[in-house]
Design a protein around this nucleic acid. Structure first.
Lengths: 349, 349
DNA sequence: TTGTAAGCGTTATCAA
DNA sequence: TTGATAACGCTTACAA
């Protein structure tokens, strides 16, 4: 592989000049530049990134640490990050499957000298310590973290408010009792959505019933399995708020297999608004999460932290607007100037 | 940030010794090693990757060049790559949105010195030139390429065979005529799947009818839009092979909105077996693509190319087995020792 | 077992 | 406008 030394020799100049041409610092005569360019072409030269970043202390690479890469959410986040990064001429170094303190720490270690900063997603409680410890290695942006870390910017989604809206919607349609299919405990999204559910019920004056809070783990199959428990419940719920779309889909699938009509017999709402939600039969009512934008904004935050390390850390929250489709009732009606879905006749009524 | 020099000073040894401890070359006395380790901890030291790879000519990073990052397929490929890479202690540098020769070339350039090799996905015809030109920069593995490049290993999926099986399945159920909803022209997957469709029909002695080959572009909405054309066709097809699941889903959704029963009135088959396929109503019959495994195998191929650059390039093909669900007919029956789906009574029969 | 010193391919600081 | 040359942080002969 050709180096600037080879180029210099071929072009009959010093390596310093080659470097100047490379970084187009203007102090190079046009004719010399031409010769150097020609040599670049001849040797098919491209500068070595490692060598470059050793002197400049700049890698032009953004690190991304994620707990997993599975599913639409993560892939959209990465897409948002990568595209935003490329717009700024930066590359993206991903590393997934970092749920525990140890792995997140060693991943951050091994990224030392290869990245300028990192976007870290830490939805679990246990990762706080790890983040505190890598904080001084390079600028960090926290994605959906459950804690604020001094000196780090962060961005998250409006889980609580979104869930609150979903459940208020269910309430407005006259549902009672309303169950929740929870996400994994310890997961920030799951917990915030649960809080949103509780708050909406509390505000409506509905008494808290813990038996209506069903265990789930965000997987389709946990949604599938929950159907039985819902139907057998002594106070059989007329609506279920699944803490994410995957569980909502598994639940609906199972319900329909058992001959239970959604939404007539049981209404179901989800959270995430995955791409497929609108194509389900019936189309899923859910709260929209803009994962792409989340990644995009994270890059923006990291960029400002990079350019001005002294700047105050910022915290952004992305709204999760309610998307009314058909799993909670198909009819729509105007009410106080807005469209609301209205509950279908109940089965057997 | 601490360097080995700081560590050496604190531990009272030379930088060479620190380096030896870092790479645990055995020639270090146990007590010395302890002192160095202690210094590592004290200074919270971790070695600079750029400096390291400058001397070793090894970055321990794999590059990934993709045309896009959108959708389940790409995210699964990346997941397979990243996890396989991490198992080997390697990082993954992704760069997406490389459809054109120019961008793929400049991305490869800018990765020089930051990666040991790359996995490149080039499903479009136009990228051949770019790949030939980056081939000598570092070892390459081609993902789903439409051409073989001397010196590069490659891996792809059995598009033709998979499509062939899907259409044979439709044929076996007695469908006639069978339409295809094509993917974007120039895309290798789309073209191979079309060939599989044609071959199956040809083998069955069905005369080729170009009007049954409908334009599509792999998006849900193109599937949605195709419904009208199918229903208005003078020889209205009883089955449609959509070249991917997205289009199949759009099509089914549109068909059902128009009150057309799937599979009774029109059967639909897809390709990809996306995660949601089994949860659709009715569950989608399709050909399974193991994107995760594709990424995983690509890493394995790259690794062998890395460890032995002289080794013969390898070419792998991942099978795409038919997954029979319900969009082509719900009944199943034993026939010559295997399960086949049997066509439901036709609407109005 | 340890230390010295020469790179690795750049950029950056001086002089010229 | 150019050219020497010293970093950058590490690995690796070669010596001790």
């Amino acid at each position: 592989m050709a180096t600037i030394r080879d180029v210099a020799q071929l072009a009959g100049v010093s390596i310093a000049t080659v470097s100047r041409v490379l970084n187009d610092s203007s102090r190079v005569r046009a004719s010399t530049r031409q010769r150097v360019w020609a040599a670049f072409d001849d040797l098919d030269f491209s500068p070595n990134g490692a060598a470059r970043s050793l002197t400049t202390r700049r890698t032009n690479v953004l690190g991304v640490l994620l707990p997993d890469l599975y599913g639409e959410f993560f892939s959209e986040v990465i897409r948002g990050i990568d595209l935003a990064a490329r717009r700024e001429g930066l590359h993206t170094l991903v590393s997934s499957a970092h749920a525990e303190t140890q792995t997140i720490l060693s991943a951050a270690r091994s990224m030392r000298g290869r990245i300028d900063g990192a976007i870290v997603m830490a939805p679990d409680a246990s990762t706080a310590e790890a983040i505190h410890r890598i904080r001084d290695r390079f600028p960090l942006v926290l994605l959906n973290a459950r804690f604020e870390v001094p000196g780090c910017s962060s961005i998250s989604i409006a889980n609580l408010e979104g869930a609150h809206e979903v459940v208020k919607h269910l309430l407005r349609l006259g549902h009672e009792p309303i169950a929740i299919l929870k996400g994994p405990s310890g997961n920030i999204d799951a917990e915030e959505r649960l809080r949103g559910y509780r708050r909406a019920l509390e505000e409506a004056g509905v008494e808290h019933d813990p038996t209506l809070e069903l265990a789930g783990d965000f997987t389709e199959s946990s949604g599938y399995r929950a159907a039985g428990e819902i139907l057998r419940h002594p106070r059989r719920p007329t609506a279920v708020f699944a803490a994410n779309d995957s569980m909502a889909m598994g639940l609906i699938c199972s319900l329909e297999n058992m001959g239970i009509d959604v939404p007539r017999a049981v209404a179901v709402a989800g959270f995430d608004d995955v791409a497929i939600a609108r194509f389900l039969t019936p189309p899923l009512t859910t709260a929209h999460v803009d994962a792409y934008r989340l990644g995009e904004r994270a890059v923006a935050l990291l960029l400002t932290a990079l350019s001005d390390p002294e700047a105050a850390q910022k915290h952004e929250t992305l709204p999760c607007p309610l998307v009314i489709r058909e799993t909670c009732g198909a009819h729509h009606v105007w009410e106080s100037g807005r469209v609301f879905a209205v509950r279908r006749t109940k089965e057997g009524e």
